[in-house]
Computed example of a mutant assay.
Amino acid sequence: MFIVLFRTIILYLLVVISMRLMGKKQIGEMEPFELAVAIMISELASLPMQDTRISIIHGIIPIITLLTLQTLLALLQLKSEKIRLFFSGKPTILIDKGKLDLKKLKDEKFNINDLMEELRMQGYYNLSDVEYAILETSGQLSVIPKTELTPVTKTDLKIKPSQDVLPITLIMDGKINFKNLIIAKKDEAWLKQMMKKNSIVSTKNILVALLDSKGKFYYQLKEKNTQDVIK
């Protein structure tokens, strides 16, 4: 039993490391060759886990080999456009200037119902609303609506809003993050002032407190489960 446990832990860690080294893409965003490598690695790892008669090294060596090949291939694709086109292909325009390209749909084995479903998932319910629909190499569909249907931006309205920034956590589960206080260019005296302003007796009563993307102080208490946002 301990042998099976030991083998499983080793193979699990190896698969996790392999997936981590392959990059941060989600499964749905992987290129075809990346998805093939991921499936093969999982299969190679599962066999020694299930059958103790198979040497664990027979699972480790193929996994490391696949990881090495995938890494080399990724590097080659960065340097060569031809290699990238061969392995990953190129995007396909399914709707061009508002018109369906039936030949491209047929080539990509993409029927109209599938296309309509993808468009609905992105908030477009009519083909007449779409100027371009591009099937990316990852299998995702990119949609460019007709200009008159493009959402109005603040730039169009000549509004100059302040730029949103990353939220900074100041207190988590009653504990002050002094490093983040420095990043936020605040100090403990300022934090105590904010707590006093909101009638908070102790940091131990705070579940979370942070500066949000607008630079406002946000907090939520533990006991009362209340929350507030102030400037």
Rank of each mutant, 00 (worst) to 15 (best):
F6C: 11
R7N: 02
I9H: 07
L13K: 10
S18Y: 04
R20D: 02
M22I: 01
M22Q: 15
I27S: 05
M30C: 05
M30R: 09
E31S: 10
E34C: 11
L35I: 03
A38W: 01
I39P: 00
S42L: 13
E43T: 04
E43K: 03
E43R: 00
S46T: 00
L47Y: 04
L47W: 00
L47V: 01
P48F: 02
P48N: 05
M49W: 00
D51E: 09
R53H: 03
S55H: 11
G59A: 08
I60G: 02
I63P: 03
T68L: 03
L72C: 07
L73F: 08
A74W: 04
A74C: 08
L76N: 02
L78Y: 07
K82I: 02
I83N: 03
L85F: 08
F87K: 04
K90Y: 01
P91T: 09
T92E: 07
I93R: 07
D96E: 09
K99F: 06
L100R: 04
L100C: 00
D101G: 11
D101S: 14
K103Q: 14
K104R: 09
L105A: 04
E108N: 11
K109D: 06
N111K: 04
I112C: 08
D114L: 14
L115T: 07
E118N: 14
Y124F: 15
Y124M: 08
Y125C: 01
D129H: 08
D129P: 10
E131P: 08
Y132W: 12
A133T: 09
I134R: 12
L135G: 05
E136Y: 08
L141W: 03
S142W: 01
E148T: 10
T150S: 10
T153N: 13
L157R: 00
P161S: 13
Q163L: 14
D164A: 14
D164K: 11
V165M: 12
V165H: 13
V165W: 08
M172K: 15
G174T: 12
N177Q: 04
N177G: 09
N177W: 02
N177V: 08
K179Q: 15
N180P: 10
A184M: 08
K185Q: 14
E188D: 06
E188I: 14
W190K: 12
K192V: 03
K192T: 04
K196L: 04
K197E: 09
N198I: 00
V201L: 11
T203W: 06
K204Q: 09
K204R: 06
A209I: 09
L210E: 14
L211G: 12
K214H: 15
Y219T: 12
Y219P: 13
Q220D: 02
K222C: 06
K222P: 06
E223G: 10
K224E: 14
T226G: 07
Q227C: 09
D228I: 05
K231W: 03
